[in-house]
Computed example of a mutant assay.
Amino acid sequence: MATISGIGNFAVILCLCFASACNSGQDKATEQAEAPPTPDEQLQATTSDNVVELLTAYGKEHPDSIAIISTRHGDIKVRLYHDTPLHRANFVRLTKLGFYDQGEFYRVLEGFAIQGGDSDDRTMKQGVYKIPQEFNPKYFHKRGALAMARYGDEKNPEKESSSHNFYIVQGKPKAKYELQAFEQQKNMSYTPEQTEVYLKEGGAPSLDQEYTVFGEVIEGIEVVDKIAAEPVNSQKWPKEIVPHKISMANGAI
């Protein structure tokens, strides 16, 4: 009887150990299943099929509207418009996931614009998608305007924006006849206030209603001028790279 009882107790102990091991394994599996996706995984999961839904939801959860673009020439502070919600949410999301910390101002057209957001040295990857255009006649390509680049009309007749490439307008003052020509060409009208800005401060009216403007520089326009003055090669790439890191300031305006 003693032998049989010992074997029984040993079997019970084995079962308890096995059950404990199983529970431990299940706990680990649950922890792994509940682990949040990495920034790379989140970026690569974004596609043309889900981008609108994803950015709409993200924008509601992240109302941020002030971003700081840091470069070796100084900081550029930009305000993002809430009534271009998809573009704002996309910019905030890429910033918070660290994607823009691997970018640079890679194209410089002095007197026109500086373009950033990408880099040949980038290690982070993202899914393939474009952002539906969000043209708004009250937002125009004045000096300091922040907008998204895109493919040309031949490949992109809907004028959808790039997923990550942005630019900031430097521009030059325009003559009134130039603005009138653009109004006629594009069947649009500038307000007196917009006309005054183009005449005195400058910008790039040729881009209006062609690319989505979704923000503007509120501090650091002199930094834009310094980047625009960088010596460039024949392809308009700065001879000395101008990396940027982007962060969101606290609060929303």
Rank of each mutant, 00 (worst) to 15 (best):
K142F: 07
M188Y: 04
G103P: 06
G98V: 03
Q194K: 06
K159R: 15
R150Q: 03
Y58K: 11
P36C: 09
V169Y: 08
D49Q: 11
V108G: 02
G203Y: 12
Q170L: 03
H62M: 05
V232K: 11
M124R: 07
T47V: 01
N23D: 06
E158F: 04
L80A: 09
E158L: 15
G203S: 06
P243K: 12
Q180H: 11
Q133N: 15
C17V: 14
T30D: 02
V217S: 08
L94S: 03
L207S: 12
P85N: 05
N156M: 10
H141Q: 10
I66C: 04
P132Q: 05
E61L: 11
I131S: 00
N136V: 08
V242I: 15
I253G: 14
A29H: 01
L14S: 06
S70L: 01
G6A: 13
Y81V: 05
P157L: 03
A45E: 05
V224S: 03
K245V: 02
L43F: 04
E104S: 15
A45Y: 01
Q115P: 03
E193G: 12
D118V: 03
F105S: 05
T95P: 01
Q44R: 14
H87V: 08
Q185Y: 06
P37H: 09
E160W: 15
A89M: 09
I114V: 15
N136R: 10
K239R: 12
E240G: 02
I253W: 00
R122D: 04
Q115L: 10
Y139F: 14
R122L: 05
N136K: 13
E61H: 05
Q209I: 01
D153W: 02
K245D: 08
A45W: 00
T47H: 09
T56M: 09
E34F: 00
G171F: 12
D208A: 13
F214S: 00
T3R: 11
N90L: 11
F182S: 00
E110R: 11
G103N: 08
H244N: 15
S163E: 10
V213A: 04
G144N: 04
T123C: 01
E183M: 06
N165T: 15
H164V: 05
F18W: 12
E158V: 06
Q184R: 13
M248V: 07
A249P: 00
Y167V: 06
K159A: 14
H73C: 02
H244Y: 07
I131L: 12
I218W: 07
L179N: 07
Q26F: 10
Q170C: 03
